[in-house]
């Protein structure tokens, strides 16, 4: 019996997990080895820690790492915080809720580069926002908003793009909570925030974690938003990796940044998901 069960599980895992391990495993292996001096596209191979020492010792690396981590955390948490109330609001259909839901999810279908392009058009030096601000007299001179130092442009784009994604996942989860459960909570005198904390949050924690993880990883590896709308005095990890490789042909150093980015994406998102589940599940004791 145990045998059959194990075989069944393995058979179920093969088409999904098996394919991933087979293909990504070999690519992943090559990237890691490359950071230690192997698999050079050109040149001789030999084991070396030099690339890691060089990259980890540079100011640029620590700046990029903390910047990418910051953007990823803000994007993931921000998107979920924005999406939760909307998902709950749209839980029960009402006149027009379909239209709202559709319009809110529209950014999901706008590729990142297009979103950047649209955004830059609007905030351009003589763009519509600046013209409007000057027209109503808030400012006399146009404000230079492109590539702002605080990365507000990138954060805005990340939220614009990812909130709908969180909404998509959370809507499904919130809608599967039965009315009886919520009514019972209300009858027991739970306030709206308590109902969220003690009923909705624990029951939707899986969907929320999925949203957090996927958004975190996507934002940590962001290239398109950062290159077009991001601050010019710091690079994101993906940008730094491409910069090392494209501008200098430093493949091994780029591989170091790439491997670090993988570590950030993997562990950062898991830590975030873990913390969120601890926070939310702590409310599940009523």
């Amino acid at each position: 019996m145990r045998w059959r069960r194990t075989l069944l599980i393995l058979a179920l895992l093969t088409p999904g997990l098996g394919v991933i391990l087979l293909m990504i495993g070999s690519v992943f292996y090559v990237a890691v080895m490359q950071s230690f001096g192997y698999y050079n596209l050109v040149g001789e191979d030999s084991f070396s820690l030099e690339h890691w020492e060089k990259v980890l010792g540079s100011k640029q690396f620590s700046r990029s790492l903390s910047y990418s981590a910051y953007i990823a955390v803000v994007a993931a948490i921000g998107s979920v915080i924005l999406a939760y109330p909307i998902a709950i609001w749209l839980r029960r259909p009402f006149r027009g809720s379909l239209a709202i839901s559709a319009v809110l999810k529209a950014p999901l279908f706008v590729p990142g580069l297009v979103a950047s392009f649209l955004f830059l058009n609007v905030i351009a030096f003589h763009g519509v926002v600046n013209q409007f601000l000057m027209w109503i007299g808030i400012t006399d001179e146009p404000i230079r908003m492109q590539n702002d130092r605080g990365a507000w442009g990138v954060v805005f784009l990340q939220l614009w793009k990812n909130m709908p994604f969180a909404l998509l996942l959370l809507t499904g989860a919130v809608q599967s909570i039965s009315d009886e459960v919520l009514d019972a909570a209300r009858d027991l005198g739970a306030g709206s925030f308590a109902r969220f904390r003690k009923v909705i949050a624990p029951l939707t924690v899986q969907a929320m974690q999925a949203a957090l993880i996927i958004i975190f990883i996507g934002a940590a590896g962001d290239f398109a938003f950062q290159v077009t709308a991001g601050p010019t005095n710091v690079q994101s990890m993906a940008q730094y990796m491409v910069f090392l490789k494209d501008s200098f042909g430093r493949w091994n150093q780029a591989a170091v940044v790439g491997v670090s980015l993988m570590i950030l994406a993997l562990f950062g998102s898991l830590i975030l998901a873990f913390i969120s589940s601890v926070v939310l599940k702590s409310g599940n004791k009523w």
Partner: peptide
Amino acid sequence: AQLATLLPLVVPGFVLAIFFSSL
């Protein structure tokens, strides 16, 4: 196993593309 399914997400696009094409 669940962790391992996330592997494709943490390999940067161009690195993946180059070695995937070689493969």
